[in-house]
């Protein structure tokens, strides 16, 4: 089909985080970390299923996480977990209509009340907490 038929912006436009502020970046990170965690979750089930191969099989697989690459991978998982959880709580509150502002007579320049500082603080907190958790995780893992 001719892409112009619908003229949809497509996945590129959906994922482009540059134009609509931190809220759109949070949306994008939420999707990415959700999919990342899903991938990790499936890999995690596979990993833990190695227990069926007994002590040796388990230890063998666990050694994979004791490498530099393994540590970096787990650091990423920690970051994804923390961001997804903290931002997830913000999104769930928002979806319930909490903290999205009150309807009022709009006045120029029409700043949207739903894009307020409470939610922005929520997003920045999720990013900062994820960064702190990643640094802590690295300190523990690489400090061994």
């Amino acid at each position: 089909m001719n892409p112009h038929d619908e003229h949809k912006e497509g996945i590129g436009g959906m994922a482009n985080p540059g134009r609509y502020g931190i809220e759109r970046i949070a949306y994008w990170l939420m999707r990415l970390t959700g999919l990342g965690l899903l991938g990790y979750f499936i890999a995690h089930i596979y990993e833990t299923s190695n227990i069926l191969r007994g002590q040796v099989g388990w230890d063998e697989f666990l050694d994979l996480t004791q490498t530099t690459e393994g540590h970096l991978f787990l650091t990423l998982v920690i970051g994804m977990c923390v961001f997804h959880t903290v931002n997830g709580i913000r999104v769930m509150l928002g979806h319930g209509g909490i903290g999205v502002g009150k309807p009022a007579r709009p006045d120029y320049p029409y700043l949207p009340a739903s894009q307020n500082s409470q939610h922005k603080i929520g997003i920045y907190s999720a990013i900062v907490l994820a960064a702190i958790a990643m640094v802590y995780g690295m300190a523990v893992m690489f400090g061994e």
Partner: peptide
Amino acid sequence: FAGSCSQVCPKG
């Protein structure tokens, strides 16, 4: 709740 709609609405 990405909020981009609200950021571009010209009428508040």
